[in-house]
Simulated scan of single mutants.
Amino acid sequence: MLSAERIKHEARSLGFDAVGIISLRQDPSEHGAPQRLRRLQEWLQRGYHASMSWMERDPARRADPGRILPGCRSIICVAMNYNTGHRPTEGPGLGRIARYAWGKDYHGVMESRLRQLEAMILEQVPDTRTRVYVDTGPIMEKSLAQQAGIGWIGKHSNLVSSDHGSWLLLGEILTTLELPGDEPGTDLCGSCSLCIKACPTGAISEPYVVDARRCISYLTIEYRGDRESIPDDLASAIGNHIFGCDDCLDVCPFNLRADPSVHAEFLPQPGTLAPRLDELTDFTEARFAETFHSSPLKRAKHAGLMRNAAIAQDNESRAS
């Protein structure tokens, strides 16, 4: 019988910085599915998902992994630390990119390791069924990671680990293999509200709840509208952010004391620490595709990054 300890050892040997397991029993209430569904439905009803319409598709399935993989008995949750300890370069004419996008695209980095872990499980237990996700499937990753004991969901709605802070990328293996579960993570945010105060747009509408319509990460990555469709107050608050935003993470005490990542894949690629706005606005679609083919920045698409760089330039000119 393949043990949970063997799986965790293999996960760490593959480079995952944290691993935890959720045991799913027949009653979904034992693994938090009803609570996840209720929170998701409340969030959707407020319209906080903005234009991300895929979040509305079958919320009950999104909240309950047992509906995704019939017969699912366990979820193996993993995480990798992406903060290499570098600092963004600030200065005239420079944009700001979120840390997770400085290196290679984490989807490929993590999925290749998860596939190796999956292969080991299938080799040891050939009759089990599995499904692998890295920020791509209809599951609520942060809630599952908390349930698996990797950390807790902070007031900025990101996962926080007492060892790694919020600089974690998440992945999962759903499996019909029955494994013992870990204790859920305990919320250690206490009375701290630094992340809420740090948000430039007030997107954290209340502790643990983010309104994507006002979130800089959403506006600079997921939103496909042009500059004219972004309210002036939000465009101004974007500042020099051209892809994502770390402002709520930068102030978290757990992030300030977290150890840097050892993964070379997440080291900054050329131009990510100090992207020149004037150079970016000259990018053709072909140059954009060539430069960012292995980068998370491709998510914004050429039009989105050009829009963001133009907003940052306009904000700088207004401030000078």
Rank of each mutant, 00 (worst) to 15 (best):
C252H: 09
Y218S: 12
I238A: 03
N315V: 12
Q124Y: 00
G239S: 02
L194S: 14
S317K: 14
S53N: 09
D182V: 10
E56L: 15
V78G: 05
R36H: 10
V160Y: 06
L168V: 09
I21V: 15
R46M: 14
D259E: 15
D246V: 10
R73C: 00
N240R: 13
E206G: 02
G165W: 00
M52E: 13
Y82I: 11
C248V: 09
P34Y: 05
A264Y: 02
L234V: 11
S166L: 10
L94T: 12
E290L: 13
I68W: 01
D250M: 14
R307F: 03
K155M: 07
S53D: 15
Y223V: 05
A309F: 00
D163T: 13
H302N: 10
N308H: 03
G271M: 10
S261Q: 08
V262F: 07
H302C: 06
L117E: 04
I242F: 02
C192G: 13
V251R: 09
L174C: 05
G103C: 03
I22A: 04
S193A: 14
P270K: 07
S143F: 10
E123I: 00
A50N: 05
S294L: 11
S29Y: 06
N83R: 12
A50V: 11
A264V: 13
G225R: 01
E228C: 05
G154L: 08
A203D: 04
R62C: 11
D246W: 02
S294Y: 08
G181T: 04
R113D: 00
C252Q: 06
A119I: 01
E228Y: 02
R87T: 13
P70V: 03
T84P: 06
K298W: 06
A145P: 04
H302M: 04
D247G: 07
T130F: 01
R213G: 14
L273D: 12
L170N: 00
P59K: 09
F288P: 03
G91T: 09
L94R: 08
E279K: 09
R96N: 13
G91D: 07
Y48M: 10
Q269R: 15
M140S: 08
